[in-house]
Nucleic acid binder design. Structure first.
Lengths: 148, 148
DNA sequence: GGCTATTAGTTGGTACACAAAGTAATTTAT
DNA sequence: ATAAATTACTTTGTGTACCAACTAATAGCC
């Protein structure tokens, strides 16, 4: 019987970048889970909060551009953030189609808590900052390269 | 008004590795979508097929270890692969708890089609092989570092 | 001004991903 | 040999992701 995986096997699972990307993404998100749980946030919700802490107020459309998510994903996510008491959702008086998403005082307060997270993750990963910067740089290249 | 994002802002969206990881993963998967669609596969299903082409037969447990997915995710995914006619699912005669997942002739045939995908993706990304290898290496480090 | 096209969000459908509860088969410990 | 613990998988519930269809509001065009 010939070897199942030849040296040149293009389809070998362990050499697929897309496979490594999926697993790395899920693995790192899993590290956030216990840290986010006390705030009641999922990882995508945390990313939305990051965007709001930095750029509030934001419309659903703007948030979608920042997070590269479509409105169909964000719409229910924002409702959950609202029912958690972290954001307000109201129509834009100048353009009733548009939704203005803002932070509640509670949502703003959460920022101080959230600031503990990045260092905790870096510590948990135990990778050097320069390596993480490298990673960030390559990922940015990939994101740019994959842009439609 | 003070600048929204200070140079040292730990929470700036665009410097979060987890954010770049999520988007890169979703962006790359999006490149696969049009290539997988003719075969009727989603990206997670494609990864399961990769694992099977390389290691068939596999139990749900083994597949879960390879793909780092739990049985609750794989169970319905495999049923869909079965209804597509690509895999068989039958109980292991030696241990009735265990499911033996094998490829159908149709599933095995699909491999030839699938071999066109990796080069097409690499071409579409337009990144050098060495850069992709770097990426794969860093991602492997991250996956290892994040292991529980 | 009124018709058309575009835009912003919402809703519903499919498919993960993960946690937790449930089931049936097998191991282990007594 | 049997009760208890473990294991492999299934099922259910929640929350994304993405697509497509839909609604309502605005912008463009004549």
């Amino acid at each position: 019987m010939e070897p199942v995986t030849e040296p040149t096997d293009l389809l070998a699972l362990d050499r697929q970048v897309c496979f490594a990307l999926s697993i790395a993404s899920r693995s790192v998100i899993a590290l956030y889970r216990p840290l986010l749980q006390p705030m009641g946030l999922t990882h995508p919700q945390y990313l939305a909060m990051l965007a709001l802490w930095q750029h509030e107020p934001l419309s659903v459309k703007e948030l979608g551009e920042l997070l590269q998510l479509d409105a169909g994903t964000l719409s229910p996510l924002l409702k959950r953030l609202q029912s958690l008491g972290y954001v307000n959702r109201e129509r834009n008086a100048r353009d009733e189609r548009s939704l203005v998403v803002t932070l509640t005082p509670e949502g703003r307060r959460l920022r101080a808590e959230a600031e503990k997270i990045p260092p905790a993750i870096v510590e948990r990963l135990g990778m050097s900052l320069s390596e993480l910067q490298d990673l960030h740089a390559v990922l940015s290249r990939v994101i740019e390269a994959a842009r439609p």
